[in-house]
Design a protein around this nucleic acid. Structure first.
Lengths: 215, 215
DNA sequence: GACTAGAACTGACACAGTGTCAATACATGA
DNA sequence: TCATGTATTGACACTGTGTCAGTTCTAGTC
């Protein structure tokens, strides 16, 4: 009796995943605005109307993708934690992980950018909650690395609230990547190569948190 | 004979301006995505079809608004130049001008954010050219302030290419404002007040360019 | 093995918005 | 007055979204 119900739930979950797969694939291929629900339905081999059973509307589907994107990002951050020795190196590794992530999954970064730019709707029951949770976890990883750095002396002790620093670094790094990804053409017009810019800006960032040599 | 043609051109320009006025008003009121060409037409008191004589499509209209937005931003930057004594103070004043601008004209900042995020189409004949020009002028103001600062010793001399620093500062500041404007709710959830965050992050930025006390 | 309740699924519809075009109104100069 | 070109519009075709009544499928009941 409840075997069945259980399997039903599983299959529903699996299908939900298939829809997301299809949507992500199309997103990566042509960008979100150019993706139609009909294409998603075809790609997932089901009728368009059924999509609306699984996702209230197109935006809800985007939130579903966002939850995935942020979960992957969090995993990248966690993996970066292991790469650095000192806390400061960990923070730097997280920053580089964000850049690598954006290069590897431009469409995921695009979702992040959308969330960064637009205020999320205050509907707590939906996929948006999953986004917020994954986002909080990601920022939590940064905070942990900062705390480590302050404790081991690799980060200036006067940085104040680690959460404030974490959010600031996030904003900065996000700004770098966004500009580097979207404005390659314009940067070149200003005689700037994209890797040069990224390295330069990132160098500025890391120098910011360094503990002074002679305390 | 050419009196007439001249007046015609003027009137066309004026009407173009009226359309932009209407579009900007609606943009400020409800956000770009919710603005329809029909609303713009009604607001400017002409038929929808005529809009397409003045602007190839809705995106072209957005570029028109963008050109305005960036021109206003450039003027803010220029005005800020006069406020600071040293070059470093000028740079800081420009940053604060950007923040004030975003607060005063959220819709204009929104346009800037759109351009920051999405690559511009490579069509050189259109309004997009005006955007690029105004943008270049704005960044030029920052570069000038940085040069002043390096010359008068208020900015560290080892900052490298002023253009690189200018673009980096732009990216950082933009990142701060974007997060502060869109994520007020989330910041509060993380126990962070928006003004605190802005001041903190901005402080980090300004400390970055400071010349060392004992060179 | 029929019967049924409910879940999964779909075709067809209504609606909203964009961009286009043939046709009309208008103004100017001959 | 007419001819010519410009300004303007109503109506249309098209695309995409979200909804819903109705059909198909499936597990449980007798």
């Amino acid at each position: 009796m409840s075997y069945i119900a259980e399997r039903r739930v599983e299959e529903k979950e699996r299908r939900r995943g298939e829809i997301l797969d299809a949507a992500v694939g199309l997103y990566a291929e042509k960008g979100w605005d150019a993706v139609t629900m009909d294409q998603v339905a075809r790609s997932a081999r089901l009728s368009r109307a059924l999509l609306y059973v699984y996702f209230r509307d197109k935006e809800e589907l985007l939130y579903g993708i966002g939850a995935r994107a942020l979960a992957v990002l969090r995993d990248y951050f966690v993996a970066a934690l292991g790469r650095g020795g000192t806390g400061r190196e960990q923070v730097e590794a997280i920053g580089r992980a964000y850049m690598a992530y954006a290069q590897q999954f431009p469409h995921y970064f695009d979702v992040c950018a959308r969330f960064q730019a637009h205020s999320v709707s205050p509907d707590p029951g939906s996929n948006e909650g999953a986004c917020a949770t994954a986002g909080d976890q990601a920022i939590g990883v940064v905070v942990a690395a900062i705390r480590t750095g302050v404790a081991d002396g690799s980060i200036r002790p006067d940085i104040g609230d680690p959460m404030l620093l974490a959010v600031s670094l996030w904003a900065f790094t996000h700004g770098i990547i966004q500009l580097a990804m979207a404005k390659a053409r314009d940067l070149n017009r200003l005689q700037i190569s994209v890797p040069d810019f990224s390295e330069y800006a990132f160098g500025l960032l890391t120098s910011m948190t360094a503990a002074p040599k002679h305390s």
